Simulated assay, not measured.
Amino acid sequence: MRELTKEDVLAAVRGGSVYASGGGGWVDHGLEIGGAALAIGKPKLVSVDELPDDAIVLTCTAIGAPAGTDWQMLGKDYIKAVELIMEQYEGRIVGVMTPQNGMSSSINGWLPAAALGLVVVDATGDIRAHPTGKMGSLGLASSLEYETIQAVVGGKPELGSYIELVVKGTPARTSNILRTASDMAGGFIAAARHPLPAKYIKEHAAIGGISIAIELGKAIIEAEQQGTEHVLQTICGHTGGKLLARGRITKKDVHYAGAFDLGTIDLEEADGRVVKLHVMNEYMAVDGPDGERLSTFPDVIATLSLETGRPVSVGHIEEGAEIGVFVIDRSLIPLSSSVKDPSVYPEVEQAMGIELLKYLGTPSGSGV
């Protein structure tokens, strides 16, 4: 157990921005929520092994599409979502975790933990960001035996879009309800879900996910003093990842639909070779010029600015930008039960119009 610091906040945002895979929130929001957590309390990061097997851990997250523009999630909304579930558990919830890393999602639970006297558990539902709650549900997405409880809070009262909602039922049904609530609240909403014993977390989560993001972030911060190319080399060297392509964004065709950002982004290299990134909130796949698959979720897939070395989200990618496509093969990262669950793929494949599941056992392509 250790107390989280403002250096950890910045490092979690920097490292989490790589694992965000083009989504995972916003840098400013992550710094704001992390700063608020340190201002009101002393959040502590603990290994899941430090908790009794029957200790209840709650997942804290935000649901929606990063390009949504009419949402509002305040710090108090994250806290309220956790409180709504704690009311059902009479003091048995001792910790919070995040379903994924990201620009802000690595820090999702820090503020409720600080405000409510909980610990932050060093585990993630997925090491990288993903578009659906089912992909971060620790292998429970298709379970008919587990009755979950999920809560969402957020929206703008002045527009009549503020919502507080608590639902119980199967993970699949309740997750779909929360996605609709997110859309109704303006495109993004704070959430808490899936109270589970620590024993289950140990067996099904990506253990150490927060520390992995923080350590990468510290390496990036140190490398920034030596320029962009050193940052890119540091990200590759620290993670074992590689740059699949470097070039200019020639086409962005991404649209908002039902609390998702969907579409494709084309990058042209200096030799005219074009690679295509497939987007559903995050980068889910990369295809080569002949349509061959170069990388597929759950690989980490990120776009890095060739001017600054920093990750660029789907919402901030612009045509004409000089970008590197960075990938960490799934064999190099801890995988949770969520991303190995075949039931989480069909709805994403249908929405995107591409295949994902058949590539699950295939390593990503060669770097350039």
Score class of each variant (00 low, 15 high):
V314I: 01
A39K: 13
L159K: 14
Y345K: 05
S21M: 00
I249Q: 02
I149P: 07
A36D: 10
G23Y: 01
A191P: 01
T61S: 15
G367K: 13
I220P: 03
S143Q: 10
D53N: 15
T362S: 15
M86D: 11
G320Q: 03
D122N: 13
P171W: 05
A113G: 04
S295E: 00
V13D: 08
Q350K: 14
L58K: 12
G91A: 13
S142P: 00
H316Q: 10
S182I: 02
M280E: 15
T303S: 06
A245M: 15
E215K: 07
A181L: 04
G217Q: 05
P298R: 02
S161W: 02
T69W: 00
G241A: 11
A115Y: 06
K242Y: 13
Q100D: 10
G35E: 08
D77G: 04
Y146N: 11
G237Y: 07
C236F: 01
V94H: 11
E203K: 09
L116H: 05
S17K: 01
K6T: 15
T148K: 05
G125L: 10
F326W: 09
L243E: 15
G15S: 06
T308N: 03
H204D: 00
R193L: 09
R330T: 05
E318C: 02
M86T: 14
V348L: 00
S21Y: 00
Y89R: 11
M280D: 09
I107A: 10
T148S: 12
V166C: 08
L332Y: 04
P363M: 12
E3D: 12
L165R: 12
S17N: 05
P195H: 08
R2N: 07
A141Y: 14
L116N: 05
D8M: 08
S331N: 12
L74S: 11
E164C: 06
S137I: 00
E319H: 04
D54R: 14
G247V: 11
A302G: 03
E145D: 15
V120P: 03
S295Y: 00
V279G: 09
G217I: 08
N101A: 14
L262R: 03
R193C: 03
L144Y: 09
P311Q: 00
G15T: 12
C60I: 14
V325H: 01
S105L: 11
E158P: 01
I235W: 04
R193A: 05
R193F: 04
P363I: 12
E147W: 07
S364T: 15
I201V: 11
A20Y: 00
A115N: 02
A62V: 11
G125E: 09
A172M: 10
V121R: 02
Y200P: 02
V254G: 05
A270C: 06
K251L: 09
G208S: 02
G240I: 15
